[in-house]
Amino acid sequence: MHPIELENVTCGYTRQDVLKQISLNIKPGTVLVLLGPNGSGKTTLLRALFQLVEIREGSVLIEGESLSQMSRKQVAQKLALAPQLESPQWPMTVEETVQLGRSAHRGWVQPFGVEDTSQVQAALQQTGLTELRQRKITEISGGEWRRTLIARALVQQTNVLCLDEPTTGLDLKYQVEILSLIRNLAHERNLTVILTIHDLNLASSFADQIVLLDKGEIAAIGTGVEVLTEARLTEVYQTPVKVLPHPEYQTPLIVPVL
């Protein structure tokens, strides 16, 4: 069974359709990267999976179950999202923020238990936040906040993890660490990861599968070598690029022509 299936999905905001007739089946244990220029519908596709945008046509199936029939809590037990932007209102600690990711498993009244605590500690360690766990989220850097959001999504213990621009604001070390962590989780725990990203070379290095979006439609789908071609990227991004083979990994290396 595919963890996520989209069939002819059309969705958007107010009057405008952002995604048009999107069909997509995502295999378990895959790192799928959504690529495309600004406004192509990457974030909207992620938001559609969480019913944060109106789905006008088509259907979304999560592990074979129709998304429209599921409660918010059921969705949160199957899909986790680390959003691109989130502005916290009160100065909770990093640990408290991550712990709230366990809410869908504990209901709204039941206190957090030993299992929740061990999940939180593991996620803090995986994201390199153990030392910062008592720091207030209003007093940490943008990169640390992004890692906190990823840790909060990890403790949801879902089979599908969605990340909206997880590398934005991170320095090179954490970009590589976070993407390596995500790839390891996907391959070891058979976790399906869907992420949006702007950096074509990072996508080329880390993705098992790439979906290239253009004006709300799928322009190409496949491995990095299949999707990231000079002609296609030049057309979609409307700027000339050169695609070279990576000297070490043989993956496509994209260089803009200045």
Binding site: R72, A76, P83, S87, M92, S103, A104
Partner: peptide
Amino acid sequence: LSRPLDLLSFGDEAAQTLGLS
């Protein structure tokens, strides 16, 4: 309703993705 109030402090969309109606 303390936990829903905690979740709402992250904003509507975050609270929804964490399972809150």
